[in-house]
Write a protein that binds this DNA or RNA. Structure first.
Lengths: 164, 164
DNA sequence: CCCTTGACTGTTATGTTATTACGTTAGATA
DNA sequence: TATCTAACGTAATAACATAACAGTCAAGGG
């Protein structure tokens, strides 16, 4: 099998600034720094997400893990995925019931996700301004916000240009 | 059975400006204006959502519908709920796999949702500024945004004051 | 009036996503 | 080495969602 981490991180327009290998090493560095145990299953799960170039369902991940000799049951995938999300190495895309590797695991950050309804690509974008506006709205409502899910559906650059 | 639509729309702090009856009549007025068929199942589903004072799962709704002589199978609930969401009478809360009545069915609006992780209440808030910021971010990414899901998790006013 | 049409409702069956519970393993530590 | 705990594996099941098809009924044309 060719090593998927060799390819660039490139969806949906194949011009992203981050290579897959770079994302992976950033993640490993942060895990070491924070004494987080990036175990074999977790690491492999992260690699699978990175190589997927987009969001994968838990059962997609599980299938790959099982094929490589890891556990065959749902909790194996869910545990690894939830751990990755909890520690900032991945994100959960609720609209798709799926998970995607974090594109910037080096730093804590607020992110929004753009989901293309043509090619199903998922793009992570910085969302500092959006989060600030949401924080304001929360304060106005007397709500103590902890975290947020911000997902937009539409067409990515490639599909919007090509399709119509 | 007491009529749940008589009570005020009041979660999570029991001080909302909209009464349940008012929401319902706004919805009926809009349905009439737009020639949308708010059939018995759909109307009853909407009433159930309004009376719930928060988000309900599709199967919760189904249970109530079934008890009242409507269909007993999931598609009955999902069809009504999806129709309500599609036409702006309700919202889907993805983080909870649940649905909630729209608090302002009179007008089209961008909304954000504040989900309390203590009491599970869901508050709908106007999100014009948030949506504007998100639209900006989308444009910067070359993404043609159509609609967005904005959900925040934290503590509502009541729980934040009371709990800790 | 009768028929067609299309929207709506109901049911069967199945597919998809996620969790609970419990036993085992393996690394860290006293 | 004895013990502790986080992590892992598996079985079973719960929770969420949809496809496909049949029956109902009201509106409109002949």
């Amino acid at each position: 099998m060719s090593d998927p981490t060799e390819s660039g991180f490139c969806c949906p327009d194949h011009s992203g600034p981050q290579s897959a290998t770079r994302i992976l090493s950033q993640a490993q560095a942060r895990a070491a720094r924070m004494r987080l145990r990036l175990t074999p299953v977790r690491l492999r799960t992260l690699e699978i997400l990175i190589a997927a170039h987009g969001a994968l369902g838990a059962y997609d991940v599980l299938e790959k893990l099982a094929a490589e000799g890891y556990g065959t049951q749902p909790p194996v995938a869910y545990r690894a995925l939830n751990w990755l999300v909890e520690h900032g190495f991945a994100h959960r895309i609720r609209r798709l019931n799926a998970f995607t590797a974090c594109a910037h695991p080096a730093d804590d950050h607020a992110a929004a996700f753009f989901i293309c309804d043509r090619c199903d690509s998922v793009t992570e974008a910085p969302a500092v301004a959006v989060t600030a506006a949401l924080t304001d709205a929360a304060q106005a409502a007397g709500f103590a916000m902890e975290r947020a899910t911000i997902e937009a559906v539409g067409q990515c650059r490639a599909c919007d240009g090509a399709g119509a």
